[in-house]
Simulated scan of single mutants.
Amino acid sequence: MNVQRLLAQLALSIGAVAALPAASAADYPNRTIRIVVPFAPGGGSDVVTRLMADKMAADLGAAVIVDNKPGASSIIGTDAVARAAPDGYTILMTNSAITSNPWLFKLPFDTAALVPVTMIASAPQLLVAHPSAPFKTLKELLAYAKANPEKATVGTAGAGQLSHLAAEQLQRMSGTRLTVVHYKGSGNSQGDLMAGQIQMSFGTAPGFIQHIKNGKLVPLAVSGAERIDALPDVPTVAESLPGYDLVNWFGIFAPPGTPAPIVERLYQSVSRALANPEVSARLVKDGFKVRSMSPAQFDRTVRDEMASWQKFVKDNKLKID
């Protein structure tokens, strides 16, 4: 009889534990949500996150805070989310580097285990130069770089970031050799660029547009296949090097094991924020393209890009020192 009672109590306990995700999903959210950005403040991911956070807070009825955790090419912040409780209160806003990092670094987490929630926006990299640089166009840069191997300096947001891969691709397709300088975030790279410590930098448009308009930076080229509305007179790299096409996207991920109802709630909140004319207009003005995707669509995109970057890194024998 005691054994039967024990088994009954055990069954009840197991049932209660199994019901926890559903229960927590039903009243989600009921406390502050933390969006981890694995980059320093000022970069594209940070700009997009802060734009979305207020709208999401109003929609979800809970506070939404932004927590910058830069370092190790976004690995530190991503690892914090990978280890977080799968309850929807700690989520990740990152960029497409999450799909190339597995092939460039030894990671402390399984990228494929993270739960894709939705893509938010995409933007090409913008290659800009300090006014003191001895080139004012991409063609002038390529001519200078061929005549002066490794003399032209270009900053990136970090080893393995898309800005790094953009610089590597530029060298390979043009047959030039640049000196690539890695920083801990695009904000740090931009600071040295503005001070003239480096000649060029790859980065997303929002951090550069106002400085371009003020004449403090010179736009050389856009990394995507098409010019952007925010800077229609700036040519694409592909106009000089056909086939060159690199675009950065920004999206939200949840910790492994996050219940589907919570993922769906987050996706719907982001979708409503993106549908807000104020938000979409601001994104376009800053050089972004709105790219809302369902969790299933985003999951397919992430897996496809992981396979593509695996091939790219292998074929080009890329190594991170």
Rank of each mutant, 00 (worst) to 15 (best):
A281I: 07
A123Q: 05
P235K: 04
R5M: 11
F250T: 03
Q310A: 12
L6A: 15
G43Y: 00
S308F: 13
P277H: 10
Q297K: 11
E150L: 10
A112Y: 08
S73V: 07
Y144K: 03
Q161Y: 10
A273E: 04
V234Q: 00
G191T: 13
L20C: 12
T301L: 14
N30I: 06
L10E: 11
L20A: 15
E140Y: 10
Q210G: 08
A159P: 00
S308P: 01
N95P: 04
D192H: 14
S201W: 01
L246I: 14
A254E: 09
D304T: 14
Q190R: 13
F135A: 06
L266Y: 02
P295H: 04
V115H: 02
N68V: 07
R227S: 08
D67M: 07
N68W: 00
A260D: 14
T32W: 04
V3A: 14
K139A: 14
P124W: 00
D46N: 12
A273Y: 00
N248P: 01
A25H: 07
F109C: 05
G196R: 09
V115I: 15
A260R: 15
D299H: 10
A22S: 12
Q125T: 05
L318T: 06
A129Y: 01
L231H: 05
I120T: 05
P108W: 09
A166G: 04
P277G: 08
L12A: 12
S122G: 12
L7T: 07
G187L: 06
W309Y: 15
N188G: 15
N248F: 01
A123H: 02
L138F: 08
E239F: 04
I209D: 06
M293K: 09
S280F: 07
A221N: 06
P277E: 10
Q199C: 01
V128H: 00
Q9A: 15
V115R: 08
S122H: 08
I35G: 00
A195V: 10
T118G: 05
L92T: 03
Q190V: 04
P86W: 10
V66L: 09
P232V: 06
N214P: 01
V3F: 12
A26Q: 13
G71F: 09
E140M: 10
P235G: 08
Q197G: 06
S13E: 08
A152C: 08
Q199A: 12
A8H: 09
D87F: 02
V37L: 06
T153A: 05
D233C: 03
E305V: 00
Q171E: 15
D315F: 03
A159I: 01
